[in-house]
Structure formats: C-alpha cells, structure tokens
C-alpha cells in the first residue's frame, strides 16, 4: 500500500503550481507547449498525472476548456468540451462538444449568463453529429474524478486564504485566529477538505487502475469534495468578515465555482442515492 504521488508527479505538481501562479489563465497553446494537452491519450502518463494538473488548475480558478478536453480524450486537433446537465462549459473556446450519447458535435450555440462568470456556459444548437471515441461510462468516471480534484484545489485555496487572514488580522488587540470561534471553524474547513482530498486521490487511482470500486469511488469523491469546497469557501468568507463579502476579493469567485462544482453531474444526494443502491442491494 502506497498512498502517495511519485517523485515525478510531485515534480509535476511543483512545476504546475509555479507556472499557474504566474499564468492562472493559460491558453491551450501554452498548455500544449507544456506537454499537458492530450496527456491521457499519449500513453506516457496515467490519470494520476492528469489528477495533479486538475487539482492545481482548481487552485487558481482556471477558466478554460483544458480539463474537459482531457476528460473527453478524443483524437485529432479539435478542442473539446463536454455537455454537462444540458449546458456546455466554455462553448465559445472549443471547436467540438461531446454529448452523453457519445456523439461529437460542432460547438455552435448561445452562451448564457451564469453566476460563476468564468464558466462560459452555452446551450448547443442543433448541429451535425458524428460518433465519438470511447464510452460515456468512462468519460463520466473521469469527469467525476476531475471535478472532485478541481474542488479539492478550490477548497484548499479558500482555506489557505482564511488561515492567512486569521493569522494577520487583529481585533480587540489579538489576532483573530487565536479566538477559538474562528480557529475551530477553520479546523472544520481544513479537515473536510483533507478528508475529501483522500477520496479524490482514491477516485483518481481507481480511474487510473480501472479498479472494481471505481464507480463508488468517483461518486463518493465528487459529492464529498464539492460539498467540502463549498463549506471551506463559506467558512473562509465568514472568517474574512466584510472584506470576504466584496466583489473585489477573489473569494466569491472561488465560492461560485465551488457551487457550480457541487451541482455539476448531480448534487451530492444523487450520488449518495446511487451509492445506497449499490450498498443496500
């Protein structure tokens, strides 16, 4: 039993973190130069390598189609998005869209206004389709794991912001992080995110290994990680006080992404219903 990333994967994480801190919104061309595009199709990398990148992209609130393009894992030079719950993220930034019936379609349609303004969500208009490669079962597993990993990145960042703030901000002559009401609330955020991180890594490993428990793992990870990210953002906003509630502070963007992740491919209860069906049958 070894529940850690390899030294090469840790190197990749360091490289990704440094790059994304300087370039939080990289173009597909930049990502291609880094060798990250087509990572799952190359045969040289596993889903665990992709998992490292997905989590790091979550930390910087990456706002492009890269994750969905990798999860779709289609051949050719098109940039793909995936229709999720009737909407297509980043519709205007992609050339093809994968639908649940495993058809590829041209990326035509209208973009809608969303609470998380970085989603670029669109509705597909009727379009010519042609069969895509692979099965929806596999795409859906990869997608749930990727959403979980992105949520872990969001939850971690939101918690870190709150810890930094609580360690610096003073009221009544003391750092507010020394008050147990603040500290214990942030411990709960940290613990929830760490627990869900374990589930997300388990899910990523299960996808990489096509483990027999993969469906339970991705359902558990996605539901728990998205809920933990929402919790961490809410506790972080609270710990920040008024500033955390303002448009200028980045927290609300993390929060809105977490809320999107919570609902994408079904809220937690839908996944837990599936888990219950499996466990109680």
């Amino acid at each position: 039993m070894d529940f850690s990333f390899s030294p090469e994967q840790e190197d990749l994480r360091r490289e990704a973190r440094a790059f994304l801190e300087a370039n939080p919104s990289p173009s597909m061309e930049q990502l291609t130069e880094l060798g990250w595009v087509g990572i799952l199709r190359s045969g040289d990398f596993s889903f665990l390598d992709a998992a490292v990148i997905f989590e790091e992209l979550g930390r910087v609130l990456y706002d492009g189609p890269y994750v969905l393009n990798e999860v779709a894992a289609q051949p050719g030079d098109d940039v793909w998005s995936i229709e999720i719950d009737g909407f297509v993220p980043h519709l205007e930034k992609v050339t093809r869209v994968l639908t649940a019936d495993m058809q590829g379609t041209g990326a035509a349609g209208e973009t809608v206004a969303t609470v998380d303004e970085s989603l670029g969500l669109g509705r597909l208009s009727a379009n010519g389709t042609e069969p895509a490669e692979g099965t929806w079962e596999d795409v859906r597993r990869r997608l749930l794991a990727a959403l979980a990993l992105e949520a872990v990145g969001i939850g971690s960042r939101a918690t870190e912001m709150a810890l930094a703030y609580a360690g610096g901000r003073e009221q009544f002559g003391r750092k507010i992080g020394s008050y147990q009401a603040i500290a214990h609330s942030l411990v709960d955020a940290y613990v929830a995110v760490e627990l869900s991180r374990s589930l997300a890594y388990w899910a990523a490993w299960s996808v990489a290994e096509q483990d027999e428990q993969v469906d339970l793992a991705v359902a558990a990870a996605k539901s728990q990680a998205a809920e933990a990210a929402v919790l961490a953002c809410e506790k972080s906003i609270q710990a920040h006080g008024g500033i955390g509630f303002t448009w200028e502070h980045p927290l609300h963007r993390y929060y809105k992404r977490a809320l999107w992740l919570e609902g994408a491919l079904g809220y937690g209860r839908e996944h837990r219903a599936q888990i219950a069906d499996s466990l109680l049958s």
Partner: peptide
C-alpha cells in the same frame, strides 16, 4: 483536539 489542529497543524496563534 481542534485547538491542537489549529495551533500545531494550521499554525494559527495560540488561544
């Protein structure tokens, strides 16, 4: 235990 995690793991100031 929450005090311990806050102070020793998260590095928050002592309560």
């Amino acid at each position: 235990l929450r005090n311990i995690v806050a102070e020793r793991v998260l590095g928050l100031p002592r309560s």
